[in-house]
């Protein structure tokens, strides 16, 4: 299941950071990706919400600083 959703997430990351070779894993943290600031975070969250047809709750947004947590939340909401 997890491997299925990491692919589109990686695609979104590549678009947002304009880097076709960017690799991400469950362990990727915001500090690991150059340019992952609050602005890029906004674009990531918006694009992920749209792709998976979900909405994150206000309380969930602050903690979404690594890919593993993102994936867990997406799965929970799908």
């Amino acid at each position: 299941m997890k491997s299925k959703i990491i692919e589109p997430i990686e695609g979104i990351f590549r678009e947002v950071f304009d880097d076709p070779n960017l690799k991400i894993s469950e362990k990727t943290h915001s500090a690991d990706v150059p340019g992952w600031d609050s602005l890029a975070h906004m674009s990531l969250v918006t694009s992920i919400e749209r792709h998976f047809g979900i909405r994150f709750a206000l309380g969930e947004l602050q903690d979404l600083k690594n890919v593993g947590e993102m994936m867990a939340l997406i799965e929970k909401k799908q």
């Binding site: 678009e15 950071f17 304009d18 918006t46 749209r50």
Partner: peptide, 12 residues
């Protein structure tokens, strides 16, 4: 949505 997702590439 495309715009927001791809703005870095668009700028380039």
């Amino acid at each position: 949505n495309d715009f927001i997702l791809k703005k870095r590439a668009l700028r380039r």
